[in-house]
């Protein structure tokens, strides 16, 4: 198994498209950072809206490394699934269309192991991708913009997290994002086992995410009640939950707390269930599949 995983990793590492994702992310984050370096205060004034009329706000301090990273993640994490699908959607079907799948499956390794090795290799890729995002969006932002308290804007208001209380939240947020992305990877894997070309699963994964997100966000009671609870996209924004700090009855934040911890844990549980179900389905289908490519 370890042998197979090494081989799969080697293949992913040697594929040019793997690095495409890293390049796109770096370019995207640098663009945001540059923009905020020049117009960060204006952006913060926009975010604070009319609050600036009644409050004295130090906009300069608001634009700090933690805030920049939060902004980046808000914009970026919605699109990372595409980059994940780009690699995960290709793992089986790409080999089918290239013609190597029949060689691979005629080797003395079990098909279950092949699928699991491919999924774990994808996990390593997703982990590297998120680590890359973390380094550029967090480490570089902190170096450029400095460290200060993080103000998080929610529909219901603003909340401030002291700078000493932020870092661990990012740690967990990236961890959560990893699980969410592994669901995307599992969807791509399943579609990949069903297809013989690599574009199909990639496009289908992105399509599924878009449709599910739309249904999740639509305020139609029928969907909200009967469909939304079962969609994986409903649980994918959970990383933000780590930045919703708990507070006392009179609005004082409690350091180190998370407002909706049970909801986050529920999301993690739901996403893990999705992963288990989708990967099991992939293994089942791949084991039964006649390789005709």
């Amino acid at each position: 198994m370890w042998n197979l995983l090494q081989i799969e990793l080697f293949k992913i590492m040697r594929k040019p498209r793997t690095y495409l994702a890293f390049g796109i992310i770096a370019a995207f984050i640098f663009l945001i950072q540059l923009g905020l370096l020049v117009n960060g205060k204006d952006w913060m004034m926009f975010m604070m809206g009319s609050l600036g009329e009644t409050m004295n706000i130090d906009y300069g301090k608001l634009v700090n490394g933690y805030a920049v990273c939060f902004f980046v993640l808000n914009l970026l994490l919605v699109h990372v699934p595409i980059l994940v699908a780009l690699v995960a959607g290709d793992v089986v079907s790409g080999e089918a269309s290239m013609g190597t799948l029949r060689l691979l499956a005629a080797k003395p390794v079990s098909r279950t192991q092949i699928i699991l090795a491919k999924y774990f290799a994808t996990a390593v890729y997703v982990f590297a991708l998120l680590a890359w995002i973390a380094v550029i969006s967090l480490v570089v932002s902190l170096a450029v913009f400095g460290k200060n308290d993080l103000v998080v804007a929610k529909t219901s208001g603003l909340q401030l997290i002291e700078s000493s209380d932020v870092l661990w939240r990012y740690f967990f947020a990236f961890g959560f994002a990893f699980i969410a992305m592994m669901v995307v990877a599992a969807i791509s894997l399943l579609l990949s086992t069903l297809s013989e070309n690599s574009i199909g699963p990639i496009v289908a994964t992105v399509g599924i995410i878009i449709v599910c997100t739309l249904i999740s966000e639509m305020e139609i009671p029928l969907y909200q009640k009967y469909i939304k609870p079962y969609l994986f996209t409903t649980y994918m924004l959970g990383w933000k939950g780590f930045f919703y700090i708990g507070s006392t009855a009179d609005g004082e934040t409690i350091k180190g707390s998370i407002q909706y911890l049970p909801a986050i844990l529920k999301s993690v549980g739901a996403l893990l269930l999705y992963i288990v179900a989708l990967v099991s389905a992939s293994v089942f289908i791949f084991r039964k599949k006649d390789i005709l490519s």
Binding site: R14, M98, G99, L103, A106
Partner: peptide, 15 residues
């Protein structure tokens, strides 16, 4: 104990 060529000898092009 089996070696095979199955139709075209497709291999990993990028390797």
């Amino acid at each position: 104990q089996v070696g095979a060529i199955i139709e075209k000898p497709d291999l990993y092009k990028y390797l």
